[in-house]
Amino acid sequence: MEHIDIDHDGRTLRGVLHLPTAPNAPAVALCHGFGGNRAEFGYTFVRLAERLAARGVAACRFDFAGCGDSDGDFADLTVSDQVAQALAVLDALAAHPAVDPDRLSLMGMSLGGLTAQLAAAKRPVRSLALWAPAAGAVAMGEEGAKRRADAIAEHGYDDFGGLPVHQGFVDDAAGIDPFAAAAAYPGPVLLAVGSEDFVLGTRLLGEYQGLYGDRLDLHVFDGVGHGFETVPARERLVELTASYLERTA
């Protein structure tokens, strides 16, 4: 494992790169969720990266700007900026001497999943893995959008699980169609979601099925929510994803 710093828009994005012993390895960029960090819930990104490296696939865990150890202000977070950061990470991986620049993949959780699906449409990545992607963050229903607007008008931000969502995020999201903007990606997709997920509901799941069609490898985890909140579910999630990325990277 080596530390990696990536310059982007005057900020340093900080991460770690898990490398296999063999040279010229395929590589995956792991995109964490809203307000998270490169370890992800239950250290699942650490476990996934270690498992991938043991199977010959390099894995880069990094903190988005304003999160974890990276530079930046969390208040400035937008989806478009995160997509640009993910592309910068892919470029850094392509330039790394231990990585095969023609065998790059993307993986993301929640808002990181939305980020990954949008970034995959802008680079020739080999495969895409999504954990509970938060397309609803830019495709909110009318009721949710009004509640958020009222909260921002009153407090200056919307309190989302103890983290602030600012007007800049909302303005950026208004210009993003999460499915039309992702349609250019032609490769395979792994999608894992809990049956009780409040973020990725039936309507949005149907949109993903329509978007990716027979390229979609869908896995619904019964009895868990957005964070795959049991030990068995998280172990299954890590192993499923590691096997998929080993096969498709």
Results as ranks from 00 to 15, higher is better:
M1V: 14
D5E: 14
G10H: 07
L13Q: 01
L13C: 10
R14W: 09
V16D: 12
P20S: 00
A25V: 02
P26L: 01
A27P: 00
V28H: 06
A29G: 10
C31M: 07
G33D: 04
G36A: 12
R38F: 01
R38E: 04
R38A: 01
R38Y: 05
T44W: 05
A49H: 03
A53V: 05
G56H: 10
G56C: 07
D63S: 08
F64G: 00
C67W: 09
T78C: 04
V83P: 03
V89G: 02
H96A: 09
H96V: 00
A98E: 01
D100H: 08
D102V: 09
G112D: 03
G113K: 04
G113I: 02
T115K: 04
A116P: 07
L118A: 06
K122D: 07
S127G: 13
S127L: 10
S127C: 13
A129E: 02
L130N: 10
A135N: 08
G136L: 03
G136M: 08
V138Y: 04
G141D: 14
K146R: 15
K146Y: 12
D150P: 08
E154W: 02
L163A: 14
P164M: 06
V165N: 00
G168M: 07
F169V: 08
A181C: 12
A183R: 13
P188N: 14
L191G: 04
V193N: 01
V193Q: 00
V193M: 05
E196R: 15
F198M: 13
L200Q: 00
T202W: 12
R203T: 15
R203A: 15
E207A: 14
Y212S: 04
G213Y: 09
G213N: 05
G213F: 10
R215Y: 11
L216A: 04
G223Q: 07
H226T: 05
E229Q: 12
E229D: 13
P232H: 08
A233K: 02
E235K: 15
V238A: 03
E239G: 13
L240G: 06
L240I: 05
L240V: 08
T241N: 12
A242G: 13
R247V: 11
